[in-house]
Amino acid sequence: MNKKDPIIQIEHVYKYFGPFLALEDINLQVDKQERIVIIGPSGSGKSTLLRTINQLEKVSSGRIVVDGEEVTDPDVDMNKVRMGLGMVFQNFNLFPHKTVLENLILAPIKLKGMDKNEAEEIAYSLLEKVGIKDKAHNYPKQLSGGQQQRVAIARALAMNPKIMLFDEPTSALDPEMIGEVLDVMTNLAKEGMTMIVVSHEMGFAREVADRVVFMDSGKILEVGTPEHFFTNPSHPRTKKFLSQIL
């Protein structure tokens, strides 16, 4: 693993919603195979930051480079970049009119021109990996929240992305289902996936994260190892926040 091999560079990013400044001078570099966990109070801009990386949200100014492509350049082929950038949402956002299997094969077939058999083979092996192969022919609504989120992870992985973005993947789940989703994510991290995860699951952060990023009011206030955050966070806001959630 080459530690100084940036796959994402975020430089001086600002994001306004009307007059409201949601991101203020964000600078962050993520190396290949690095696992970043972003924490911070609600409304601090965590989702917005994550969404600027795959350009679901356009930046107001600044520059973001993902795997050599400058995604903030209006001329970039963003659809192609997004194929290499998986995203998992808080509310799963599975396609309700398609079965689990169809959810997984739609993008590989339509976007990569993969043939159906090959796509299904990959889909089945991914479903096995996330532990719900037996649900392949069910519709999302027939699954529990934890199962749906695991399908959503498998759907993103079906495009064989280099980077995975997770936006509070467990915060819409019943407590007893959080573990099964975190396990899938932990395994993914062990396989060397580059991951940026917005989450307040501190056990997960401690086990998996290389670095933790603390955001507040649209700014990155502190970046450090999980140990640093749990033992002696430097910023008073960080201390206050951690004391609230731990």
Binding site: L56, M87, P96, H97, L111
Partner: peptide, 29 residues
């Protein structure tokens, strides 16, 4: 749900593909 569009776009579908593969089939109902 706008989340459907976001999910499709995040997979790499363009706007037209998102409309025809994801949004319209659901809207039909």
């Amino acid at each position: 749900d706008p989340g459907q569009t976001e999910a499709a776009m995040s997979l790499g579908f363009n706007k037209r593909q998102t409309m025809f593969y994801v949004i319209l089939p659901q809207a039909m109902r």
